[in-house]
Design a protein around this nucleic acid. Structure first.
Length: 418
DNA sequence: TCTGGGGTCCTAGGACCC
DNA sequence: TCTGGGGTCCTAGGACCC
């Protein structure tokens, strides 16, 4: 059995822990530079304030309702998140930390799920002061659905919703398809145009149509809605593939020295993340752009590869400065800068992107075998990842003598693989 | 006037190769 | 007048997640 634990209105709830008088009052939290609304209490949601809405657009509408407005305090939210995850890990289930306020749980033994859920809700409320919702079901996707239902009807579920064979279709019928994990604005528009409106409709939609429009992720979604597990719990956090540090200026800038100052602080933060995770970067890209909400949007970038000897903050700063100067235009009013590091590697893991031996056509299994053997000899690893490009990518896992294809991104092979 | 920040995955299309 | 076939690699951009 899977479960999804999700804190309710997480950032708002964190603020309330330290200011209990905010309980029951309308509260919202703003993004950096107080730009957008990124967390809303139920009272604010009831006032029609949308997630991600620019604050200046809703300010007027909210005035007169006594809304308490907070700038975001990520240090606080990060700390509360760590405490929440530690409490969950002390329980009987396996835990995957999915985001700052969400975790998937996996139970190996049968239990009374209602009781287990209620006791977790009570425990986290007592120890941390945070309200949470829990959804139990046979797959991650269905656990997400169950969690949504629990939040949708707090009165009825009291924070805990269990979906099993007896009630899953009824639950899916009660959920708009826009609330499904993996269905965003675009897919929702398409599905609505086809006459579908609920999660139930998606579960029983023609597979060929789902495959054509939503591709491989859509097939997995449908599979999981039917109770077949496509997504296991991920026990080890995957190695980062890129690290980004970017920030809006809060005003328009055309002075190259001021923009450079902002960019160097991006470099500083990106470098810090890199060091914290014990990683090295193969490439760096710096970018600056003007406001995307105005006409004449410009996006300038410059990128370069990095050697093993150019991993210090000093080196990265120098390279970033040259990169910026190569693309800067003083006639532009910039509003944001950033740094992207990718081609990440650590000393004990060789990334495919940095692996220079060519395999040739990956469908030729003999060559693949030879290549795997060569990699093993060269790096002495038990586990080797190999990839070609695009839809033919395949990942192989080598465990002692046994080797089996584990994953394919080729959607027409998906059903066989799964 | 004011519009966040950090990720992943997939596809289309152009440049290029023989 | 008619103008091949098969492939790789890279980039940009779309779509999704929190």
């Amino acid at each position: 059995m899977f479960a999804l634990v999700d804190a309710n209105n997480f950032y708002v709830s964190c603020e309330r822990v330290f200011q209990p008088d905010l309980e029951g009052k309308p509260v919202l939290v703003l993004s950096n530079n107080d730009g957008c609304v990124i967390a809303r209490s139920d009272e604010v949601k009831a006032l029609g304030c949308k997630m991600g809405e620019p604050y200046f657009k809703v300010k007027e509408r909210l005035s007169g309702h006594g809304v308490r407005v907070f700038s975001s305090n990520y240090a606080l939210y990060g700390d509360m998140s760590a405490r929440l995850m530690a409490l969950l890990m002390a329980g009987s289930a396996d835990v995957e930390v999915y985001s700052v306020d969400e975790a998937f749980l996996f139970y190996r033994d049968r239990q009374d799920w209602k009781t287990e859920g209620a006791s977790l809700v009570a425990k986290i409320r007592q120890y941390l002061g945070l309200p949470i919702s829990i959804g139990f079901a046979a797959t991650k996707t269905l656990a997400k659905v169950a969690n949504r239902l629990a939040k949708q009807d707090k009165e009825r579920y009291q924070g805990v919703c269990v979906l099993d064979d007896t009630n899953v279709d009824r639950g899916l019928s009660a959920l708009p398809l826009t609330d499904l994990w993996g269905v965003g604005r675009r897919h929702a528009r398409y599905l609505h145009a086809q006459g579908f409106s609920t999660a139930y409709d998606v579960k029983y939609a023609p597979t060929a149509m789902i495959k054509k429009q939503l591709k491989s992720p859509g097939l997995q979604l449908q599979h999981e809605l039917k109770g077949h597990v496509c997504h296991d719990l991920e026990y080890e956090p995957a190695l980062r593939k890129s690290i980004c540090a970017s920030k809006s200026f809060g005003r328009k800038l055309s002075d190259v020295d001021v923009v450079l100052g902002a960019l160097l602080s991006n470099v500083d933060r990106a470098h810090e993340k890199l060091r914290q995770q014990g990683l090295y970067a193969g490439f760096m890209l710096v970018f600056v752009h003007s406001s995307p909400f105005k006409g004449g949007y410009v996006f300038h970038r410059a990128q370069c590869s990095l050697s093993d000897h150019e991993q210090s903050l000093l080196s990265l700063s120098g390279i970033a400065k040259r990169a910026l100067l190569s693309c800067f235009d003083s006639k532009v009013r910039y509003c944001k800068s950033g740094v992207l590091l990718w081609g990440l590697y650590s000393k004990d893991c060789v990334q495919p992107s940095l692996f220079e031996d060519k395999v040739g056509n990956s469908k030729q299994s003999e060559k693949l075998d030879q290549a795997l053997e060569a990699v093993r000899k060269r790096y002495g690893k038990n586990s080797v990842g190999l990839a070609s490009t695009g839809c033919y990518a395949a990942e192989y896992q080598m465990n002692s003598a046994q080797r089996s294809p584990r994953y394919s991104t080729r959607w027409d092979e998906l059903l066989e693989v799964s």
